[in-house]
Design a protein around this nucleic acid. Structure first.
Lengths: 186, 186
DNA sequence: TCAACCTGTTTGGGTAGCCAAACGAATGAG
DNA sequence: CTCATTCGTTTGGCTACCCAAACAGGTTGA
């Protein structure tokens, strides 16, 4: 069993990820970023942002000039860029390969962006480069997804996973175990 | 901007997800599950498990018989099965479509399993069914991934994202925005 | 000049997790 | 029977977030 607590052992927390990317975005959008700008963008109070940024300043990710204008250190900038890149990659995958509607793709990408490893993100980029959006397949998937969404919303299928998917995943698991055993034999 | 705090607005937390799936797994493996079994499996203290399970019991997800043996309610069982299914689906995708090594696939799948929406999981299942592992492509990707991993470990590339990937993601973003604009025009 | 407003900070309160330590109850060995 | 172990629970302490509220400093318009 893998250590499941690696979950919150990431370079930056979900919260910190959004603080950093907000600053970066504000700098691009309006040229500066202050505590209240970040608070407004994230929808939390100035007090919360003030406290959070104190930590990020101590960790050397965020800097502040004489006029209380925020900036990112080189490290902070790198981290923000990394998270943003992961978000874009995942969103693209969810939209274009899985045919998910835009909003859901954005939401789910946002949830996982700071959790996936760098290697996984790189692999995803390679995958997307190699298999660029196949519009036909995508449209077909999008159609099926739309039907699914509707069923769920109407309460016709309130139970995930449905039988088909569970069977499919059981099969995947079986194949996985098989493969591991052959590897172990080497 | 999407509400980034949906992050911890999921039916179950990362912690709860593991408590539930542990119980389910223990029931399968040894026919029963007690507080200490769960604690051992999760690598945390009995006290922590005791407290966590109190909450899950109040929420009606976990039940307990006269002999302090734990079980899952119908709802609890459904949730545990759902999370497990998502884990399997993501792990399969990371391994077979992205060519990631087994351990990393398991780790990353474990991090996101409880966060992704049901619809996303269903879409992923459809995707995997439609594009079963292409062994050739997978081997090729695995090779590239191996090289990447090595570079990162040796510190030759300590910076994610590298230039290529960032350029690629910029392009994805550009395409995304273009598409949104065309949709807006409709 | 002075009140109104906006800023950033601090403080006390709340939730969710984790730990270590202490406890009572049950169980098992001798 | 007794002592040691195991089990589940409770408690106090910790971190990481969030909020609301109070406060201090700066700007600005009348």
């Amino acid at each position: 069993m893998i250590d499941w607590r690696e979950f919150d052992q990431n370079p930056v927390s979900h919260s910190a990820a959004h603080h950093l990317t907000s600053i970066q975005q504000l700098l691009e959008e309006q040229g500066y970023a202050r505590v209240s700008d970040v608070a407004r963008k994230l929808g939390i109070t100035r007090g919360s942002v003030s406290v959070s940024l104190k930590g990020l300043r101590q960790r050397g990710l965020v800097i502040e000039d004489q006029h209380k204008h925020l900036g990112l250190s080189e490290e902070g900038h790198r981290i923000a860029r990394g998270i943003h890149t992961k978000r874009v990659l995942f969103q693209a995958f969810l939209r274009e390969s899985l045919g998910l509607p835009d909003e859901l793709a954005e939401l789910d990408a946002c949830k996982v962006e700071h959790l996936v490893s760098d290697v996984t993100a790189e692999a995803l980029a390679l995958f997307l480069e190699r298999r660029p959006a196949d519009d036909e397949a995508r449209a077909e998937l999008a159609e099926q997804v739309k039907v699914l969404e509707k069923s769920i919303k109407e309460g016709r299928v309130e139970t995930f996973p449905c039988k088909e998917i569970e069977d499919f995943s059981s099969e995947l698991m079986r194949k996985n175990e098989l493969e591991n055993n052959t590897h172990d034999d080497e």
